[in-house]
């Protein structure tokens, strides 16, 4: 489904990724681990076309993202859901409105939005907080709203960038359970994180990045930092 071929990505003179080769199959749950600054977010940004490789190719279903036109890129993004590292919820909108926003953008009808959003909020266990603003929610709740928004347009691929970033163990576990549940419903998931304990527990494929290079691939992660 996703293929990185010898990808190089630089920010001015900082090399964020180099020589990255990677293949992700449909239905997989992949953990992308590495220290801060290793290049995890950069890798995910290349998949949604927010950043472009300086060399090599990123292929989605055999289509090189670099060849996708500006007018088609939005439609590619609608197949992907992303939970951003900095969450990016709109402060002046409620949980419901934040999720609905993503569906509105994709051109869904109002009836569908009103029908789907409660279901998704229920899936992440936040239906009772539908009318709360981000400022009225805990970190874990906000993360879950972000996940709900990423799922709103029913993506085939979910990219979760540090969704357990500022959460304690209990909350982290809840988010992780949620991601596993989503994966079991058929969505491919890529989880970027530096939390080793988390990754070791789930026994799925783990890819380790260090200073922009993939240094290890394990079928059933036992990751050490």
């Amino acid at each position: 489904m996703i293929k990185f071929q010898n990808v190089l990505k630089k920010y001015d003179d900082v090399t964020a990724l180099q020589g990255v080769n990677l293949q992700v199959r449909h239905g997989e749950f992949i953990s992308l681990v590495g220290m801060s600054g290793a290049g995890k977010s950069t890798l995910l940004k290349l998949i949604i076309g927010e950043e472009h490789p300086d060399d090599g190719q990123v292929l989605i279903d055999d289509i090189d993202i670099a060849t996708v036109s500006k007018t088609d890129l939005p439609y590619l993004r609608r197949k992907i859901g992303m939970v951003f590292q900095d969450i990016k919820l709109l402060p002046k909108r409620t949980a419901f409105e934040n999720v609905a926003f993503a569906m509105e953008v994709c051109g869904h009808k109002k009836e569908k939005i009103n029908g789907d959003v409660p279901k998704i909020l229920d899936l992440v266990g936040l239906l009772h907080k539908r009318n709360h603003f981000p400022s009225q929610m805990s970190g874990g709740e906000k993360q879950r709203v972000a996940i709900a928004r990423a799922l709103a347009h029913r993506p085939v691929l979910l990219l979760a960038d540090e969704p357990t970033g500022n959460l304690d163990e209990v909350n982290s576990d809840e988010v992780l359970e949620l991601l596993l549940k989503i994966n079991s419903l058929g969505t491919t998931v890529i989880l970027a994180t530096h939390a080793s304990s988390l990754v070791n527990r789930i026994k799925r494929r783990v890819i380790t990045i260090e200073s922009g290079k993939i240094v290890r691939e394990q079928a059933q992660g036992n990751y050490q930092l």
């Binding site: 007018t71 590619l76 990016k88 709109l90 993503a102």
Partner: peptide, 16 residues
């Protein structure tokens, strides 16, 4: 700004 950035990332078309 914020809204536009999110719109872009969740797949809003240019004209939208």
């Amino acid at each position: 700004k914020e809204e536009v950035e999110i719109m872009r990332l969740v797949g809003a078309t240019n004209w939208y």
